[in-house]
Design a protein around this nucleic acid. Structure first.
Lengths: 293, 293
DNA sequence: ATTTTGTAATCGGTTTTAACGATTGATGAT
DNA sequence: ATCATCAATCGTTAAAACCGATTACAAAAT
């Protein structure tokens, strides 16, 4: 058994397809088949069911994957730890960020990069649940998202700040002077959702639904800056976490019916080596905590 | 980084000597040197100091060893777990046993082997502290010893029974009818120590010392059955945990001054996969618990 | 029912690399 | 000063990882 084989196995498990997995591993399908078979022989257990032209993980495979994952993680933790000994002169930090927190993230990253110019940053934007899944697969060091439930004991949660949801409009819109707005008023407005598929989107739809309202979302855009550009035109309104917005041409108007605030938080895995770079990034982040991204 | 290299590294670390380590690994010193170097290059860190003709672990090496150990352990745990899935039809159980518990052990092993004939048993007899060290190095699944302090949170302790220390004599000796004896009386007797270097030995010497007594141990034997044979001759007396002795030609006489009882216990590591065979053995052991070995 | 497609297994050959044996060089012991 | 011990290094060999092409199979499409 070698770490190489464990890595091959996990990739095959992830994709349920040897050909694809081989591609991602930069080896041939032939090699992958052989290495998996070799592993199976050593373990004296089939890891995949070969049913017809497809492979599916066996129960044994699923159980074994846990251990394989951890074995690999420990070896990599060891490596990270050593690279930390070299005083943050090297290493990579992989951070998942949800769209609404990109402002906070970019500010923090800017500062972090000046302090630790030798650390490579990999940022992955995506939906919270996806990011958290990647975190669990050890593909990320930490994620920056809005309030996932904080009850999973395998994670460590660091709340950063709370921020309410607000309607975003152009400063030139008829609503720009309003101090607050109701969902009912908003129902008739041309709305633009900038967080489709994200948890914030879910919270918004639920709030409307709760009041029996059926707003029409005229547009969906998976990028907040672009969405904000469009809102500036005055043709649309959007709903976002208030702190995601800071622009002289835009105003945020509190929505009275949505009480629930979104909590921005940093999440990382329990029980794994915490790279120094992780702690350093967290510190930087906390300095910006009250500016709310 | 491969598990093979991690294993090589740990062996080299253990022996602080590449040549010896290579021998135990059944590879040449040349290969070991190369593989260690390769690992060092990948980690970009020296694991050993090469000072003159000897190697010593660097601080980085010591830190890394922890992770290497765990990585290997996880992979092996995965394998064990799979072999357990095959319903205890296979696998090896390595158990460390201290001398005084060999009667309990052999009875338990007998029963265990009948129940699970396909499990290979490896028994290692030795001094408790040595066994516990091997346990920590993952070279053993569990150890059967007398009361080590049970404060190490990395271990799980299963007390089995308490047993007092007693003098052992032939049934034909002038003391054979005595209900108890004092250390002072024993000081003048020809004594035979059967547990030299073991923790029980330590407890005995301390008890004498505490009363300012200086007994003469006429003989040291590292094997209890042999020691008992000699005691049967009537020429010597010995001191042992009472339950270690059960023989129609021998009697055990309680020693009034030694209050401290020895607790037999099964110890295994925390946080590692517990083989089914381990649990099974433990169950067998508990059935014999009250017979006190 | 037949063909096509998508996939894994297998085979023979190539490349890489782990492993070897012998040698060198350095150092501590005699 | 000499010897013994050990790790590093060098050139070679054997093992194994890997490749490309082919085969085999089953599912999907025709």
């Amino acid at each position: 058994m070698e770490l190489r084989q464990l890595k091959y196995f996990l990739k095959a498990k992830e994709l349920n397809n040897f050909t694809e997995a081989a591609k991602e591993l930069y080896i041939t399908q032939s090699t992958l088949s052989q290495q998996i078979k070799q592993l199976e022989i050593e373990l004296d257990t089939l890891l995949f069911n070969r049913v017809g032209k497809r492979v599916t993980l066996t129960e044994a495979g699923a159980l074994f994957a846990q251990y394989a994952q951890q074995s690999i993680k420990k070896s990599e933790d060891g490596k990270s730890m050593l690279s930390d000994l070299n005083n943050l002169q090297t290493g990579t930090l992989t951070i998942g960020v949800t769209l609404g927190l990109q402002r906070l993230f970019s500010k923090a990253v800017l500062e972090f990069a000046t302090r630790y110019p030798h650390i490579r940053i990999e940022a992955v934007f995506g939906a919270s649940h996806r990011l958290v899944k990647d975190l669990e697969n050890m593909e990320m060091d930490m994620v920056l998202v809005f309030n996932e439930s904080l009850d999973n004991p395998n994670y460590i949660y660091h709340p950063l700040f709370d921020s309410p949801l607000a309607m975003v409009s152009s400063v030139h819109s008829p609503y720009s002077e309003r101090k607050s707005i109701t969902l009912e008023e908003m129902e008739k407005l041309p709305l633009l959702v900038a967080t489709k598929g994200f948890s914030t989107d879910h919270v918004i739809s639920q709030a409307f639904q709760l009041q029996g309202l059926k707003p029409t979302f005229h547009m969906e855009i998976n990028d907040i800056p672009t969405a904000l550009e469009l809102v500036k035109s005055g043709n649309w309104y959007s709903i976002l976490v208030q702190t995601s917005v800071l622009d002289k041409d835009l105003v945020t108007i509190p929505i009275v019916d949505i009480k629930k605030k979104r909590t921005a938080m940093l999440i990382r895995m329990q029980d794994t080596y915490q790279k120094k770079a992780m702690r350093a990034f967290q510190e930087v982040l906390e300095e910006y905590r009250d500016e709310g991204g």
